[in-house]
Design a protein around this nucleic acid. Sequence first.
DNA 1: TTGAAAGCGTTACCAC
DNA 2: GTGGTAACGCTTTCAA
Lengths: 339, 339
Amino acid sequence: MVVTKRDITIKDVAKTANVSVATVSRVINGLDRVSEATRKKVLKVIDELNFVPNTIAASMVNKKTNMLAVVVPEIQNPFYTAVIGGTVEVAKKAGFVTLVVSTNGDEAEESTYFESFLGKNADGFILIGTHKTADFYQTIRKPTILVDRYIDNSGHDGVMIDNYRGAYEATKHFLEYGHTRIAIIDGKHDFNDGKDRYWGYQRAMVEGGVSPDPKYHKQGSWLEDSGYQSTLELMQAEVPPTAIFAANNLICQGAIKAIRDLNLEIGEDISLIGFDENELAEFVKPKVTVVRRPTREMGTQAAEMLIKRIKDKSTDETNPKKVILDVELMKYGSVKKMN
Amino acid sequence: MVVTKRDITIKDVAKTANVSVATVSRVINGLDRVSEATRKKVLKVIDELNFVPNTIAASMVNKKTNMLAVVVPEIQNPFYTAVIGGTVEVAKKAGFVTLVVSTNGDEAEESTYFESFLGKNADGFILIGTHKTADFYQTIRKPTILVDRYIDNSGHDGVMIDNYRGAYEATKHFLEYGHTRIAIIDGKHDFNDGKDRYWGYQRAMVEGGVSPDPKYHKQGSWLEDSGYQSTLELMQAEVPPTAIFAANNLICQGAIKAIRDLNLEIGEDISLIGFDENELAEFVKPKVTVVRRPTREMGTQAAEMLIKRIKDKSTDETNPKKVILDVELMKYGSVKKMN
DNA sequence: TTGAAAGCGTTACCAC
DNA sequence: GTGGTAACGCTTTCAA
């Protein structure tokens, strides 16, 4: 009863159109010289039979699947979602489809799924990696872009932001407004992104002539709950800080909730700066000052670089390119002037 | 210098292991009888050569790519993200990888990308479709699950929630608390989900002996800004409603922001119920009562059903299965008692 | 237990 | 302009 999509092959088309498969292939791919008459004839048959070319078979001969693979730690964190969104958008415009998987931040999982994508012959990879050393990345011989977390000597391109500067600017902003009891809430320093934020904070403090008090460094898990707990602890200490730098989006959300639950006023009882925009930071009054990074753009950038690499057939090991996107301190009024 | 992944084929392995490709194939796939000695030998070579089987080539002969394709309107809306997340999780456990694309709610785009996935020989599809009529879906001859938006006579399975009941319960809750000026903010009735929510509201109103006032039906775009504007308009009318039902997550967020900007108090000056949980609804005090739906579970359910279909090699046109997941009214205190 | 060879749906080269 | 056919990397009969 219904038109059948698929299971029709190029041979069927050739047969009913009374031409060779070679000819059909030519009209499918457009580029070859074939008389207008046969072209029309073939096109008509393709339409009638509802023929969809098996691009996977084609990929066997031309060594190109037009598939991009994206590997992220966690598929529901808005930051990763934004990166994926940017990638998919650019990919589809360029005729690529996108494979996606999340690793739950587990190295073994990452290896497994990466290999699975390799087996599927993806043309290139965008990795927000979980592996901490270069050797995993070094064995990859296909165009690959490392996003957000960069591993030195990996031999691949990277798209990152200046975490160091972001944290530095935020901390300096506190100092300029007269704060000295400035706390930082972050997570494990497993990757450069988190580590750099911490050291950006450190440097600004020292440069500002304030020696950072370890009591004011709460190192938890990068998750909301950790931000919540750490904020409670900080604010209930004998000498609470006057300012808190929340080193990622989830920690910032946790901090906002904790401050609310303690019945404190942001920008009055406690100053706050977050890293990365988030729904809550934008909602509360005053809005929370944040270090803003171009999340979606990280995905589009990475995809563009990757597709270029693929088209140039250049692997990147010769001269890896590192693109550092700009961060910006968005001052919204959650920092009180103390002087 | 570095171990090479890929470009090594089964032939290379066979050659260096001094066996036939058939034998190598057997050990890769485990299932066949092959002596322990040769097995070990082959395995060793595979490891040394860092051989990753080309599963795409394999798929040509066994007609199975182990790829699932997910098509959503918008890749960054938390609802779709949750569905994708659930799907990916189930898929990878079952050995499938996931292709993802967003259509921007455009029928032509949907057709294009669907066809692209078809050409890639995906084994099955999960669609949050944009097409409004059955014919598009009817031509699909591969296992397919329609999620959230169901199209009758599509010939495919569906995973949905009871939008009608959700809206009905929400409205009834308002009525029971003595409200009569109950507004609803929704978007276009292009699909069953939105339409059902409206009619659930209608029925509850009528059953409650209140004839719905068209002034209190704001039909905008399903986006946050629309929810914001509609709320402003409603509350600035001569006779504002005492209760608002925000028919999706984004509209609800917009409503919350508008209420905040009008300096009104939720649950006091205006009662509010949302559809779908969201960050803001959970943050404000009192929390906003919402119709909760199991978003992530919709994805896992769909993936499980799909994989079962694929394994059974059953297309679904014979007896489509509709799974309706439960919604629940989470009463958090944003509805004032008027009687 | 192992190997040879056909075949999966394409493309691309080489003839005509 | 068009057709025949080898080749892509694998699986799976069929024989040995």
